[in-house]
Amino acid sequence: MTERNILLVSIGVTTLFALLGVVWGVAIDSSMIIFDGLYSLISVGLSFLSLVVLKQIQDKGATEDSRYPFGKAHFEPLLIVFKSLSLIGMCSFSAINSFSVLLAGGRSVAPGPAVIYALISTLGCLAVMLFIQRNNKLIESNLLTVEKNEWLGDFLLSLGVLIGFSATYMLQDGRYNWIVPYADPGMVVMASGIFIFLPLKSFIGAAREMIFYQVNDQSMKPVENEAADIANEYNAKYKLRMVSIGRELNIEVNFLLEENRLLSVEEMDAIRSRIAIVVSKMKKQHWINITFTQQPLWL
């Protein structure tokens, strides 16, 4: 299944849950269920934006190449930053609004219908999350990873709602029935606080890519080992720079040779091939720049 088709499935199901959540929440006056529906509704808009960006990234026309001579890989982390900030803003607003309801004495909600909604939502979110995760194993798309994380957030949110309203249902006729009015806004405050961290994690990862932060040591190690072996063979020094931008790797290797050491064209091509073979195993699009200099010191 293609990346675009997976996003379309996600958008379709998200739209259904968004409408269901908003309508059901308004009907029983539950801010928690309305929050769940609005979270899904915002996700629909962000998923459509993902499709637009995906189309831009995959467009290989000559006009596009001239407008973006260094590629469009940076579109992906830019989109992830925007999506993450949107969800963080929505969670922050919901938490503040529900906290004011708590201070005002809470809100009574019929827990029975809320439990039914939460059960439907929990099972649906789990199914879509597993669907995206399974199909993304071969594609390894950052956009689909973020999409899966959004469904994971929806699943955990719905599960929390299910547990919370189930407990409220059992307490409504007991000695602790005074808790019932605080359950709905209280769950919104807790859910909003927790779910800020999921988009925050995506935001930090995408922001690191946008400022060209070096990839982690585990990703660098294979290239580093090959560059070190080549440097030892030619009695040279090397410097490796490696950054990840969206679905692309940008790699630069500088070999510093001894002053009187000359490499033939065949030797330089062989070195480039060795580095390229290692990088190709990482299953990501990549740009490789390898240079050879003869000077006693790095400039």
Rank of each mutant, 00 (worst) to 15 (best):
N235M: 10
V188C: 13
V265E: 08
I28M: 07
I288L: 14
L162T: 00
N225Y: 12
L79S: 00
R247N: 11
W287V: 04
Y234N: 09
S30D: 04
V279T: 05
E76W: 00
E209S: 06
H74M: 08
V215M: 07
H286M: 12
A236T: 03
N149Q: 13
G193A: 14
Q172G: 03
E224S: 06
V52Y: 06
M129F: 10
V44I: 05
I96C: 04
S40G: 15
V52N: 05
V52M: 04
I28Q: 10
L87P: 00
I290H: 07
V23I: 15
P111M: 02
N97F: 12
Q218V: 11
S94P: 10
I230C: 13
N177D: 07
V101Q: 07
Q295D: 13
L19I: 13
E252M: 14
A118V: 06
V13L: 09
N225K: 12
Q214R: 15
E266G: 07
S108H: 03
E224C: 07
G164H: 02
I163K: 11
T2E: 06
R247K: 10
H74E: 09
S158D: 03
G61H: 04
G193C: 06
D29H: 12
L119I: 14
V180F: 03
T293W: 05
M90L: 14
R272K: 15
F165C: 04
C125P: 02
L200E: 03
D173W: 07
W178L: 07
T168L: 02
E259R: 04
T63V: 14
I132Q: 01
E64G: 10
G186S: 09
S84H: 08
E266V: 12
L156N: 07
F48T: 08
K221P: 09
V52Q: 08
H74W: 12
I290L: 12
N135Y: 07
Q294N: 13
K239W: 09
R272P: 00
T63I: 14
L257Y: 06
G45W: 03
F203K: 02
V109F: 01
Y182D: 09
L198N: 02
R247Q: 09
G246S: 09
M187S: 09
A270D: 12
G186F: 12
P296M: 08
E3R: 00
I139T: 07
K55F: 11
L41D: 04
F75K: 00
S192P: 02
Y169V: 01
T145S: 11
K83W: 01
L16W: 06
I34Q: 00
S192D: 03
Y176C: 08
L41S: 14
